[in-house]
Design a protein around this nucleic acid. Structure first.
Lengths: 216, 216
DNA sequence: AAGTGTGAATCACTTCACAGCC
DNA sequence: GGCTGTGAAGTGATTCACACTT
């Protein structure tokens, strides 16, 4: 039952809608218009309606959307109505920052394990280093066991550029097929694996490019 | 001297080209083809040539590009042939992770100061906490002074969602007009300010959406 | 022969504008 | 009257394919 190809920008916006709708729902709002949603997330109302219309008719003409219903529908589309266990590879500053970040859990993503190469973060600690409550740092050799026991589908790569490709391969080996990559490298992975890169320096360079454009 | 509107995806790719070309140059490569660049960054060669062609003719027909020349040209376009001082607001795990991240300096971005609200990271330390060598954590009230003294144009927001909007306003107040925002909120800012959002949960939700699509 | 540079064609996404319903 | 849903139009980005240069 493939509906039809959904534009990626639409999916990104759905996530923004979801966050806002959950907040609106918590505040007890009952009805909301595409215009209000648009203002909240900085997007034209026609775009909001078009995005939603890919998936069905969720609103009431002349009225708007029931916040609770729309919220549930959008969360279901994004599959955030279920918890997602994730692993993080790399227990450096960034890996630990994400492991302790509460915002993930708020959206249903649970970091169930942090990994690092056997030699570094692990060996340097006495025996069982923990980054926070109940979150041990495992050696990489435990990756396969944990991923399979906990049926993990998503991994976050937070290791240096040099090791990112081999870590990606290790993750894929164990069955993880959805990866967020923070390392500043282009990873190559098989067709069926989805990688999303989050690259701070690329973002900074877009800013510096645009600063350069203005002053010329 | 506005050339013509450059597509944003092109600018993002320029950053990838730059990183790769600098590595190729360091390895002593002399000539490179659009196809080799494309393979390295995972993009079709026609796209590489089209991207470069927005800015001029950098190659030699039938031959390819001189690595050193192209590298210099692309770095100049991105304005990464000059150092950029940046500030980070928010000295939590994420802020500290970025402040100590060497990859920024490699690309010419120097974190010159980390800020936090007066009450938190600062007050809790004895007197002058440092996150690493020579990088003190300043109280927010010092922001304006530092930004203006060091002529800072870029800021990175790494504070909780609740305070991100007011921090953005504070940055803009001091003259910063290019901002990377890690907080999971849509900031509204004046026309002339450029915000780039880096949102981990949005990225994870795109992955969960796509996982949901496959199994249906 | 090999690889760039680029108009033209295609594909993708956004915006418009209005019919349809409450 | 007000707001949704959506084809149609418009805009933007990618891919094609080939003339051009070394």
């Amino acid at each position: 039952m493939k509906v039809l190809k959904i534009p990626e920008p639409t999916v990104v916006r759905l996530s923004l809608y979801s966050r806002f709708l959950n907040q609106a729902n918590d505040k007890g709002m009952d009805i909301i218009s595409s215009d209000e949603i648009g203002v909240a997330v900085g997007i034209p109302s026609a775009q909001v309606r078009k995005d939603l219309s890919y998936f069905g008719e969720f609103g009431i003409r002349g009225v708007g959307y029931r916040v609770k219903d729309l919220c549930e529908q959008v969360d279901k589309l994004l599959c955030v109505n279920q918890p997602w266990p994730v692993v993080i590879i790399g227990a450096g500053h960034l890996g630990k920052a994400m492991a302790t970040y509460k915002g993930l859990l708020d959206r249903g993503f649970e970091v169930v394990a942090l990994f690092d190469t056997d030699s570094d973060a692990i060996a340097s600690s006495a025996s069982s280093e923990e980054v926070s409550d109940n979150l041990p740092i495992y050696p990489l050799r435990e990756l396969e066991r944990v991923v399979q026991e906990k049926k993990i589908k998503m991994g976050i790569i937070a290791v240096p550029a040099e090791s990112a490709q081999s870590i990606a391969e290790a993750l894929i080996q164990t069955g993880v097929a959805s990866i967020i990559n923070f390392a500043p490298v282009v990873l190559n992975v098989p067709e069926h694996v989805e990688i999303r890169n989050i690259d701070l320096t690329v973002n900074l360079e877009v800013l510096s490019f645009n600063l350069g454009m203005r002053s010329s």
